[in-house]
Structure formats: C-alpha cells, structure tokens
Amino acid sequence: MYKLLIADDEYEIRNGLSSYFPWESIGFEVVGQAADGVEILTFIEQQPVDVLLTDIRMPVMTGIQVAQHLFEHQANIKVVFLSGFQDFHYAQQAIAYGVNNYITKPTKYSELSDVFCKIKQLLDANQKPYLLPQLESSNDKIIDTIKKYVQSHYQNASLEGAAKLVHMNPYYISKYFKEKTGTNFSDYVVQVKMKKAAELLDDVQYKIYEISEMVGYSNSKNFTRTFRKTFGKSPREYRQEE
C-alpha cells in the first residue's frame, strides 16, 4: 500500500475524501489529514508519504507553496492538486513544480479513480528501477564477501564456509558465484592460492614444500602440478626465473 496524505482547509472535504473513497482497493492507505501547508510539511517530516492530495488555496501556506518546497527539496512525493478554481495559471505553476495532476471540485469518483490508478502505475514503475539497483548492489556485496573470505582463508576456504558466511545454500552459492563472476568457486580458490604461492616464492627463506603447506596443500606433488597448470612452469622454475 502506498501512503497518502490528504489536505484541505475544509474538514468535511478532507474527511469525506479520507473516509468514503475506497483507497485501499486501488493500492493506497490514507495515513493522515492536514488543514494547511504547514501541517502538511510537519506531517511529512514525521512520517514518510508517497502521495499528497492537497487543495491549492489554504490558509497559512498554500498548496502551490507546499509543492514548491517539496520540489526544491527534491522530496520523492507525488503531488495531486485539488481545487475549485479552474485557473490555468495555477495549472501552469503545478507543472513547474512537478505536480502530477490537477483535479477540480466537486470531485468525480471516476476522475479520482483514474488519476490515482495512473499515480499507482508511476509509483510501481519507480519502485522497479529502485529495487533493481538495490538488488544488484546486494548481489555485489555477496560476491565481495565471498571473495574476501577466500582471500583471507585461502588455505582451507570451502564452499560450505562461504555459504555459512552469506547464509545461503552451498549448492546455490556454487551456481550463483559462477553466474556472477564467470568462474567456478573452486577455480577461484585455486587462483587465489596460486597467486599467494607466487608471492611467497619471491621470498627465498621459504622452501617449496613449506609454501605448499602455507597455501593449503599437504601434498607438495599436488601443489607442483597445480602450479604448473596455472603458470606453465614448476614452482622451482618460477623461482629461478624471478
């Protein structure tokens, strides 16, 4: 449900709109009422609102001034004007401040319904562009977390360990990691191990079998085989060329 605030300086109008129109059936929840522009802004500061349905001519602060304030502060609120004054000048000002529609009094049921169905479509569309980047950002964080885990625990990094860290099923993580990076999880672990091994080979104080153990290989022959497959040469040859 999208949150709707209704504002009009006449109690009967704002209360009638709040109480007798089936807002929930078209996806809106009336979260409050306001009698003037100051009350509108005070309410919005305290509670998030998706849509504002407001009269234009109100005491203290007009609907136009409210729309201008929201526009200048880049508030993500759809505004619909409600007024008995069929004045093109007001409509022009409404467009300048990003107002979504202009409804004249007395309000017709069909007009109100049509306008707010369109508003809902706009909100739904905005929600999809907003959620997709958020989802992509979340996806990136998952991959980053897994990569950092492997880089920190390359000696004994496992699919099960990564899955526990991001609270996902190991089988799903395997497919997910491949889909997002183009690399199998196990291959990525090997890449990190071999990169670390190459760095350690630059330090002559470490023997090759020690480096094998340091990067998680208890069998130095397996280490040598994997290293050769990665770099096209044995660890000893790699060290001699450096």
Results as ranks from 00 to 15, higher is better:
A75L: 06
P48L: 11
Q47P: 01
E45L: 10
A75V: 08
E45C: 06
L70A: 07
Q68A: 14
M58C: 01
Q68D: 11
Q74E: 15
F43L: 11
T54S: 12
Q47Y: 08
D55T: 15
V60N: 13
L53F: 14
V49W: 11
Q74C: 05
L53P: 01
P59L: 02
F43K: 02
E72D: 12
L52Y: 07
D55M: 00
P48C: 05
Q74F: 12
L52T: 01
G63F: 08
N76G: 05
Q74H: 13
L53N: 02
P48K: 13
G63A: 03
V51W: 09
I44W: 02
V51P: 01
R57V: 11
H69M: 02
F71C: 10
V66Q: 07
H69I: 13
L52E: 08
G63S: 02
Q65D: 11
E72H: 10
I64C: 00
Q47M: 13
Q47L: 07
Q68R: 15
Q46D: 14
Q47S: 14
P59E: 06
D50K: 04
F43V: 13
L70E: 09
L70H: 03
Q68G: 03
E72I: 05
P48W: 04
L70T: 04
H73F: 13
V49H: 04
Q47K: 13
Q47N: 14
E45Y: 08
V51A: 10
Q46V: 06
L70W: 05
A75G: 10
I64T: 09
H73N: 15
I64L: 12
V66S: 05
L53I: 12
H69C: 04
T62S: 15
A67E: 10
T54K: 01
I56L: 10
V51I: 09
H69W: 14
I44N: 01
E45S: 14
V60L: 05
N76L: 13
P59N: 05
N76S: 14
N76R: 14
A67C: 06
T54W: 01
Q65W: 05
V51L: 05
H73G: 13
Q65M: 11
V60W: 00
D55G: 09
E45R: 08
G63Q: 08
D55K: 07
Q68I: 05
N76P: 04
D55R: 03
F43D: 11
P59W: 03
Q68K: 12
H69Y: 15
M61S: 12
T54G: 04
A75C: 11
Q65T: 09
Q74Y: 08
M61V: 09
I56R: 00
P59C: 00
V60P: 04
A67M: 15
Q46E: 15
A67H: 12
V66N: 05
I44V: 14
P59I: 06
A75P: 07
D50M: 06
I64P: 00
M61I: 07
E45Q: 15
I44K: 01
V60A: 12
L53C: 04
H73I: 10
I64Y: 03
D55I: 03
A75K: 11
M58N: 08
F71W: 14
I56P: 00
E45W: 00
V66E: 12
F71P: 05
Q47H: 11
Q68M: 12
V60Y: 11
Q74M: 10
T62K: 03
A75H: 10
M61R: 14
V51G: 03
M58F: 00
L53D: 06
